[in-house]
């Protein structure tokens, strides 16, 4: 009979071999061709989970580079995350941390794909309480700033800054709206100031961006607030304009 290795030692040896088959020897006393079965199942499983979540990144990298990245992610990391659907987020964090030296357009693409996917199932944060006369965020949403046009030309190396609003609509579908820098500033002011009236927020944004015609800027911003409220992105009261706007 073969010698029986100590339990934990045998388990660490097997696991380390699966994570890094090139550098870690297979576990002792096991048929190599059957160890290879586990190696293949293990890799295909991870490859599938990450590739299904980040199809555009995988497409941009090509099969060879993609698989190398997935291998390195596993060889270098010890994953404590028990939920499969969060694993691509760990991969994206590892990429952003410089683990793979990917160019910025691809790092941003990976982030965008993950933000869009994870927003589709994210638990909704508690909606802030309504403050009379104020505005608040309503739908689960992410405000994202990128230096490359990840949403229109995935992987493009031609810089073109963009502000993207992703939100989950009333039918639980993720929608996207491209914002101007002023629009992004306005939304972030709504998030930060639930007690401010819309008129105050609009005036503050017009001042901050140094718009030559503050009244026109405020009118434009007001249209944006109305549109966001129609879409369920925000809720609350919007000052002025023609007629009374219903509040949610």
């Amino acid at each position: 009979m073969q010698p029986v290795p100590e339990l934990a030692a045998g388990q660490f040896a097997f696991a380390n071999h699966l994570r890094d088959p090139a550098r870690r020897p297979p576990p002792e006393g096991c048929a190599p061709e059957r160890v290879a079965v586990y190696g293949e199942l293990f890799f295909n499983n991870i490859d599938g989970v990450l590739g299904d979540a980040l199809p555009q990144l995988r497409g941009q990298l090509g099969a060879g580079q993609w698989q190398q990245l997935v291998r390195r992610f596993y060889a270098e990391q010890n994953h404590r995350e028990p939920l499969f659907h969060r694993l691509p987020g760990e991969f994206v964090t590892w990429l952003a941390g410089g683990g793979a030296l990917l160019p910025l357009p691809l790092l941003e693409l990976a982030d965008f794909e993950w933000q869009r996917l994870s927003l589709s199932w994210a638990e909704a944060a508690a909606v802030p309480p309504t403050v009379a006369g104020g505005l608040r965020l309503l739908a689960p949403q992410r405000l994202l700033g990128y230096r490359y046009p990840v949403h229109r030309l995935p992987g493009s190396a031609v810089a073109e800054s963009s502000w993207l609003l992703l939100w989950r609509n009333r039918h639980d579908r993720v929608e996207l709206m491209e914002l101007t820098p002023a629009g992004a500033l306005l939304l972030s002011r709504v998030a930060a100031n639930p007690s401010h009236r819309s008129g105050e927020l609009l005036a503050e944004v017009a001042t901050t961006i140094g718009h030559p015609d503050p009244a026109a800027a405020s009118a434009f911003g007001r249209q944006l607030l109305v549109r966001w409220r129609e879409l369920g992105v925000i809720a609350g009261e919007i000052d002025g304009g023609s007629g009374h706007e219903a509040t949610h």
Binding site: V4, P5, L7, A8, G10, Q11, F12, F14, A15, N16, L18, R19, Y38, L41, F42, N45, I46, V49, Q77, N78, H79, R80, E81, P82, F84, L87
Partner: peptide, 12 residues
Amino acid sequence: ADGHLYDLLPLP
């Protein structure tokens, strides 16, 4: 074993 593998391994 020292992190998740997301696959079921056989115990001895």
